[in-house]
Structures are given as C-alpha cells and as structure tokens.
Amino acid sequence: MGSKNKLKRFRENETFSNVIQPTREELINGSPLKGNWHSHFNNTNPIVLELGCGKGEYTIALARKNPNINYIGIDLKGARFWRGAKTALEENLNNVTFIRTQIELIDLLFDKNEVTEIWITFPDPQIKYTRTKHRLTNAEFLKKYHHVLISDGIVNLKTDSEFMHGYTLGLLHGAGHEVLYAHHNIYKNPETPIEVTSTQTFYESQYLEKGKPITYIKFRIRY
C-alpha cells in the first residue's frame, strides 16, 4: 500500500463514527469508555473482541451473523481496518467498532468482567524466543484477558501456525486452564463447531487453497 493511500485512509478513519483512536497517554490517564462500553453501543448486549483484527473481515462477518452482539476489532494498523470500518458504515452495522491501539493496553480499555468473548485470528506467531513477550497467548496476555472477561468468558485462537497452536496448547494445559476444544486441522474434523469454519479471513481462504491446515483452540482462563 502506497504512503498516499495510507494517509488517505488515516484521514478517513478520523471521520468514521465507528473508529476510536486513543493515545497511550489517554488510556493510562483513564479512558472514559472503560466500564461504559454498553453506553457507547446504546445497549446491554454482550461484547466480543477481535485482537489483531487486520482488515476487520472476521469482525464484520461475525457482526452480520449476530446483530445482538457488539463487536470490537483492535489493531495498531489503522490503514488495514479502514476497510472493515468503512464496510460497517456502508452496511449500517451499528454493532461494530474499531480501535487503533496496542493490544497490550486492553486492560486500560475495558473494565473487569466487561467482555464476553475474545477472538485471536491468525496472529504473528513470534517464533523467535526473544519475541515471546509479543505472542498474544503468552502468560502476561492471558492475565489481561482474564481481567476483562466475564467469569465464563471464552477465548478463541485460530491460526495456520503449528508452532503457535502447540505453544498455546502446552501453556494452557501446563497452567491448568480449561481447554474446551482443540484441533490441528479443523476443516478435516467433522466435530469442529460450524461457526469456526463458516467464517474465514482473506488469508485463511488463501491458506486453504494451498492446502495448509488451520488450527483452532477454544478455552477459558482459570486462576
């Protein structure tokens, strides 16, 4: 994507009613939306997050299927989720919001027990050991997710990375978290929940065309 195109999208994001772009300092000083997201959506429906939402395809697809659930896509790259935000406005999807910020700040964005479910779709596996702290399912991130999730809140990890799948599964079992479902090739398993295979990202469809297996873990964080 050219720099001019990025700048254009950044400017458009600033005009979109469904895009929020807080600074790190604003979140540290106390976001007015923390604990008040139901007021933002003007309803008391469950709130579901997609972390590292990219172009927002998964957020949009889920929002279309479930109008009585509020979806929030979070990513630092606003030029990417511009497409999802624009689509939501064009289709009058009032249950969709996008936030441009670092995922590590999630506990500054949401209050305890404010989120019902989290989706992590095709994250960078950060394979190098020195990048462990950036893996979205490491122990520190799980603590943050646990803080914002309701007591029976669900986390979903969908990835094409066997490394990420194995790392996460090992960490969950080792820490005593509750694994509800796990499979290393969901499109070859008839027991895979339909909502997992019926929604695909652009990259996921490309991986499938190449015959690459897609893995999935559904779990609850228990401390």
Rank of each mutant, 00 (worst) to 15 (best):
Y58F: 13
P67W: 01
T87P: 02
R64A: 05
I72C: 05
V96R: 10
Y71V: 02
A63F: 02
R80I: 04
T59H: 05
L93V: 00
R83N: 12
E91V: 04
E90S: 14
V96P: 06
K77Y: 14
G78K: 12
D75V: 00
T97W: 06
R80P: 06
A63R: 00
R80Y: 11
N92A: 09
G78Q: 12
E57Y: 09
G54M: 12
N66H: 08
L76H: 09
F98N: 05
T59C: 03
C53M: 09
I103K: 13
R100T: 01
T59L: 01
E91I: 05
R80K: 13
Y58S: 13
R83C: 10
C53L: 07
E57S: 14
I69T: 15
L51M: 14
L51R: 03
G54E: 11
I69A: 07
F98G: 01
N68R: 04
L89Q: 15
A63K: 01
L62N: 14
N92V: 04
A61G: 00
G84I: 01
T101Q: 09
A61P: 04
I60A: 03
T87R: 10
E91S: 09
T97G: 03
E90L: 14
T97K: 13
D75P: 07
L62E: 07
G54R: 08
A85H: 11
L76I: 15
R80W: 14
I103P: 13
I99C: 06
I72E: 05
Y71L: 04
Y71A: 01
R100W: 03
R83D: 14
D75E: 06
L76M: 15
G78L: 08
I60C: 04
N95L: 01
G73I: 03
E90T: 09
A63I: 00
Y71F: 15
